[in-house]
Design a protein around this nucleic acid. Structure first.
Lengths: 210, 210
DNA sequence: AGGATAGTTGACCGGTCGGTCTAGTCAAGG
DNA sequence: CCTTGACTAGACCGACCGGTCAACTATCCT
């Protein structure tokens, strides 16, 4: 009943695009409406507040990002540890495309919002934590796959996956700072080094005990 | 001539404190003035704009941070590669103290501002780039020291130091996300693993060529 | 003593912020 | 066909934003 429209979709897409390129605080409801071709009345028909929008946009963005990674990286036929190099290259292509289109590397939306918002809004922080922990779990599964395939000695998976997630966030921060997507290429072997290094270190400390 | 006061100092300190805990955009000139116990007129007597303030505050903050690191970490008597573990613990103590005092981990001011501001203001981006590149150079010097001491095979110092800087930024991002300074402790051995791993990887690829 | 200078005060500015609200418009269901 | 209800339009709100300004006060130099 009543009319229907794709205005909500457009607002959600505009939110992801604009907030990724600027910041949550810097993008106003007016900006969102203009970019989505919508008036304020419609905005507040679909969303209770700007905050409700970012929460929904975040879920949608992460769902798409996760799906993309699953298909292109984590479920590929490569050996598990090789997938991380692919992940670097996949991120590289994303940042490169962003720079070609907008002249700027925007970095990781989740990382950007983490540093902007996690001391300012508990709910947003929790949403970011949920998504980044899910990403860490996907990384962890890949590490487990490597162990099962015999490519890696056993290792504390949650520690190693946390190190990997941190490294990716750091690389993307530097890519944004220097406006240079090539950071991801230069450091495409880092992740393998970290995972293997942590595993080896834990093996040695086990041997020392015996 | 004329009267003198420490108002400028107080404003600079307030800027570092408040912006570290919230964000550049979220902290208004009014907030700064209230926190520093100063009226708007005085603020604009000392600074042309909010942006001029952050630029000056950033220089001051980094100078103090750098001096602290030099004394406590980089010029210590430990073996070069052991200094990175000390750096982790030094950062840990800082974030722990911050959490005890404010209930929140605020992360790295330079990293926070990088993700918030580097697509929004070229001058601020350049200031951040300058300071973070200086930090990277200090890391690089420590890696060189390790090579000279015979503790590490020769390695592409700028690549390795970039990886180290990225990792520190990533660790601090996760510490802020999870409001947990212990991240720095859990990962205190990561840096050594990264530096040694990159060096070893480069050695192997040299051997392959021969 | 008395300029000259450095610092202080707080009212004021136009613009923008997130958010509200009332009056409409359009399309499907009965 | 006409009611119902989802959607749209845009004027409006008080609060706050960064920034300006003219009057004032304290201190140093001559």
């Amino acid at each position: 009943m009543g009319r229907n429209s794709d205005a909500k979709e457009r607002i959600l897409n505009s939110a992801i695009e604009l907030i990724h390129g600027r910041s949550y605080t810097d993008v106003g409801v007016k900006d969102l409406c203009d970019h989505a071709g919508v008036k304020k009345g419609s905005f507040y028909h679909f969303f209770d507040s700007k905050k409700a929008l970012i929460l929904e946009a975040l879920d949608r963005h992460y769902a798409a990002f996760r799906k993309h990674l699953q298909q292109k990286v984590f479920l590929s036929q490569q050996r598990p540890l090789d997938r991380f190099e692919s992940l670097n290259m996949s991120l590289y292509r994303g940042h490169k495309k962003c720079k070609d289109q907008n002249g700027e590397v925007w970095g990781c939306l989740l990382g950007n919002l983490t540093l902007e918002m996690s001391t300012r809004d508990k709910e947003i922080q929790e949403a970011l934590m949920k998504h980044l922990s899910d990403l860490q779990a996907m990384i962890g599964q890949t590490i487990k796959d490597a162990i099962d395939a015999g490519d890696l000695p056993s290792v504390d998976v949650s520690l190693a996956s946390e190190a990997v997630l941190a490294h990716y966030q750091g690389l993307q921060l530097l890519a944004k700072l220097r406006n240079d997507p090539e950071v991801l290429v230069r450091h495409r072997l880092d992740i393998r080094i970290i995972v293997e290094g942590i595993a080896q270190g834990q093996q040695e400390s086990r041997n020392q005990l015996n």
